[in-house]
Simulated scan of single mutants.
Amino acid sequence: MATKLVALGCIVYGAAETGRVDVLVNNVGHGTYGAVEDVPMDEARRRREVNVFGAARLTQLVLPHCVADRGRSSPAGCTAWPSTRGPHAPTHRLHRTALVTHPAPHRGEPVPLLAPGVIHIAISKTNNAYLIEGDDGLTLVDVGSGKAVDLLLRTMTELGRDPADLNRIVLTHAHPDHVRGAPALREHTGARVLIHAADAAWLSDGRVPSDGRSSPAARWFDQLPAAHWTPFKADATVEDGELIAGSGGLRVIHTPGHSPGHIALLHEPTRTVLVGDAVFHARLLGYGPATFAAEPAARASGAARIPTDVTAVGFGHGAPLTGPGVDAFQAFLAKQR
């Protein structure tokens, strides 16, 4: 009871003094060593109470003060070593990252700021979207599946923005993992959907047509319901070299190959390029599976149209690159020229 009162008192005092709780380090934990069969069950239960439920209770006490500042908690711990008797987790860490330049958490982590005005949103373990602060509101690049819509809406809210601030959705190409959520997100926000004219007809079809893939395996995949989306029409089309009005400086770069109308987008104010699926970053840089491309042989020439004088790179699939990592991207593009 004394320990509980001390913990509660420290949390209340800290929150009252600062108005927030940024980081909680939990050093309460204990364990004993020896054979598992030698530990009394009462001792094991008490250790579990301290090491696991104690950490969970601290999370409950801290979370309201974190949420008030749009934060989140993230408990983590270690399990027992083979020679440890009973649950042993002295290193449980409860942390809430101070959200200053990365203000909106998603999937338990702060949203990474790829560049000033360009936010990277991991909409799944493999797919990315990008939110750009524009002249007249927000622009979203790619949407992902229907399941991503709630995450995108929540992210905008946690950024302190009304979802109605989303004025446009720019699709890099018409593949299901990039467009399936677009109709629902447009309905929620009123945003206009933009895509290159060469891919626009695919949106109305609700699927990739048979001539949009280079292999029988991909054409078979496109017959599955999982590869279909609710048919919809784009509100406008974009073309190579166009500066999208109101987007905060997004310049269209036509990069055909993965699909006929595939585009990359250069955020000119920060020299950040969003390449969609023109280039994949799956440990190594490459073009992704040729199976799902419309014209695999055209992908290199399409990627060669992407500028190399950039400061950050966002991919449709794979972790973005900044700083020294951009050098590898520049070297990759140099080989395509």
Score class of each variant (00 low, 15 high):
4 K>P: 00
4 K>A: 13
6 V>I: 05
8 L>Q: 06
8 L>Y: 09
15 A>P: 04
16 A>H: 15
22 D>E: 15
23 V>C: 14
23 V>M: 12
24 L>Q: 09
28 V>S: 01
31 G>T: 13
33 Y>D: 06
37 E>V: 11
37 E>N: 14
37 E>K: 12
38 D>V: 09
40 P>I: 06
40 P>W: 08
44 A>T: 11
47 R>P: 03
49 E>M: 01
55 A>W: 09
56 A>K: 14
57 R>V: 02
58 L>G: 02
60 Q>L: 04
66 C>K: 15
71 G>F: 07
73 S>E: 02
75 P>I: 13
80 A>Y: 08
81 W>D: 05
82 P>T: 13
91 T>N: 07
92 H>D: 11
93 R>I: 13
96 R>D: 07
98 A>G: 13
104 A>Q: 02
105 P>E: 10
108 G>T: 12
108 G>E: 12
113 L>M: 08
117 G>F: 09
121 I>S: 00
123 I>L: 03
125 K>V: 05
127 N>D: 05
129 A>L: 06
130 Y>R: 13
132 I>L: 09
133 E>W: 05
138 L>T: 10
142 D>T: 14
145 S>F: 06
146 G>W: 03
148 A>K: 03
151 L>K: 08
151 L>A: 01
153 L>K: 06
157 T>F: 06
157 T>W: 11
158 E>K: 04
159 L>N: 08
161 R>G: 07
162 D>T: 12
167 N>Y: 05
168 R>W: 03
170 V>W: 05
173 H>T: 09
174 A>D: 00
174 A>R: 02
179 V>S: 03
188 H>R: 10
196 H>P: 09
199 D>A: 14
207 R>Y: 13
210 S>C: 09
210 S>A: 14
214 S>C: 11
216 P>I: 03
219 R>P: 12
220 W>D: 14
227 A>I: 07
227 A>G: 14
227 A>P: 15
233 K>L: 07
242 E>S: 05
249 G>D: 02
254 H>F: 02
258 H>C: 08
266 L>A: 03
272 T>V: 08
280 F>W: 11
283 R>M: 08
283 R>D: 13
284 L>N: 15
284 L>R: 15
286 G>F: 10
287 Y>L: 01
288 G>D: 01
290 A>G: 15
295 E>K: 11
298 A>M: 08
299 R>S: 07
300 A>S: 13
301 S>D: 02
306 I>Q: 05
309 D>Y: 11
312 A>I: 00
315 F>N: 10
318 G>N: 09
321 L>E: 02
322 T>F: 02
323 G>C: 03
324 P>V: 12
324 P>L: 01
334 A>N: 05
